[in-house]
Amino acid sequence: MPAETTLPGDSLLSVRDLRVQFPTDDGIVRSVDGLSFDVAPGEIVGVVGESGSGKSVTGQAILGLLRRTRARVTGEIRFDGRDLVAAPEAELRRLRGAELAMVFQDPLSALHPYYTVGSQVSEAYRVHNRVSKRAARERATQMLDRVGIPEPHRRYDAYPHEFSGGMRQRVMIAMALVCTPRLLIADEPTTALDVTVQAQILELLKDLRDEFGSAVLLVTHDLGVVAETCDSVVVMYAGQCVEQAGVEDLFARPQAPYTWGLLGSMPRVDQDRRDRLAPIGGQPPSLLAMPPGCAFEPRCGYHEEVPDGRCRTERPALVHSGDGHSVRCHLTTGQRLTLRPVTS
């Protein structure tokens, strides 16, 4: 399915039919199940989904961090022309930290408790650059300063536990960006933080993208964060991309019933919603036993609009519907226009 989304020539990262399977005692867990999307250079792409949607696993698969687990990764992850799934470990290691970097959800556990933050940042620099310790220290201090750590020269020698949650996440970001990678994968970078600190960190990510030109894959469960930060969005459900679009397009003209459901579930801080929220009924499907048809069909309120019960028997393909908007749904374009609930 190559011609589904944006042209591969434009993209820095191009994921095609990615599958991640974890063998367990109860069977094979299909965490990611045929995922395809693209990231253009310098673009902030939001990967949004609920727990178990496969969004975090996707980030780790791109970096090759699942190679040390029992997971089976297949499909294609093309970064700058190279296929990361097939690449030898040594090549991937040269890319990790240098071209592809990652920021994790909980900065306290993601930083080594026994090393100073400065040494951890400069270590990240020295792996990929043959420089003296002093030059690395200089560079790390500069980076700490850039991400907003006050008194970076002094704080270089402080340990992670001596920082607040927000400051720790700044350190993580400094560490990830110290080699100016072309793609930063941020896995729920603000979920563990308070909302006022979240706003600071998201602002920082946007600024750094502008300054360093790094593309960002922002993995999150929060559509609000996506709307504030991203250029385009991948909506994931049960290991698949159900919709990908530019951010304004997605929020103005959402096309997948799951996206409608997510938007309908959200109370808004900036406006009064009608009396009741419109949640999605039921629970996400078990990743051990996926329905043969559309993964969302059991919770979807629109499957009767599609003739012949196709939703139950036939898995819809991710189809390009113009303007870089793709959707995985059996509803016709016309049906989606008339059926879409008015959310705001």
């Binding site: 040390r68 990790r96 930290g97 240098a98 556990s109 080594h112 792996v127 993580m172």
Partner: peptide, 13 residues
């Protein structure tokens, strides 16, 4: 631990 995952993510041997 998460911090070991971070170390892998840095590209350390």
């Amino acid at each position: 631990e998460d911090y070991v995952r971070t170390a892998w993510a840095k590209g350390l041997p």
